[in-house]
């Protein structure tokens, strides 16, 4: 009979989960989500090259705290909440170092398709939003999370998220309208 992790002492945890087992288990959860995670980070930081560092930090941080992850919960919102913290940290550092303008308008990575012009307009609209609005905008429209999952990721109430999302939607639509 195994004890629930909550009551397990240090020795029991060490014996139950070896490093190899943790890695295998982590990869089982992480691999299906990593592309979506990378895309969320990339788009959230305006296709900046720093997205690679943020992704790397997120993956390592997720791995580091994976032992604390409650496997009865969904992994995707959990790992996205880590990514969100890393993105916030990135913007904070950029603001502190007055380097915020260097991350704007890096659309070179957007493929040259029929929708390119429209896509650029949507991304421009998204980057005109406030940080919180932009986070929720990308989580909802790009990563496909629902309101309750976004609430789990951001730590905000569902009502608050609905209001922020509605404001963001209005701003984006009015931005796109003004670009006509």
């Amino acid at each position: 009979m195994t004890l629930p992790l909550f009551f397990a002492g240090e020795r029991e945890i060490t014996e139950k989960y070896s490093n190899k087992e943790v890695i295998i288990s982590f990869n089982k959860f992480f691999i299906p989500e990593k592309k979506a995670l990378y895309n969320f980070i990339l788009k959230s930081v305006s296709f900046s090259e720093d997205s690679n560092d943020i992704y790397q930090n997120t993956a390592l941080r997720a791995f580091k705290y994976f032992r604390k992850f409650d496997t009865s919960k969904r992994f995707k919102p959990w790992v996205f909440s880590i990514a969100l913290n890393e993105i916030r940290k990135y913007f904070k550092n950029k603001i502190q170092s007055s380097d915020i303008h260097s991350i704007e308008n890096s659309y070179e990575q957007i493929p040259d398709t029929q929708n390119r012009e429209l896509a650029e307009a949507v991304y421009s609209a998204a980057y005109s939003l406030k940080n919180t609005e932009r986070e929720i905008f990308f989580l909802f429209y790009d990563s496909g999370f629902n309101i309750s999952e976004i609430s789990e990721i951001t730590g905000k109430t569902q009502g608050n998220i609905k209001v922020i999302l509605s404001n963001a939607r209005k701003r984006v639509k009015s931005f796109l309208g003004s670009k006509k």
Partner: peptide, 22 residues
């Protein structure tokens, strides 16, 4: 540009940009 862009259109545009991890 279409002024009356719908929620679904935004989702499609954002999701059409899908990048692989280097």
């Amino acid at each position: 540009m279409n002024k009356k862009i719908k929620d679904e259109d935004i989702k499609v545009i954002l999701n059409s940009m899908d990048f692989d991890i280097p």
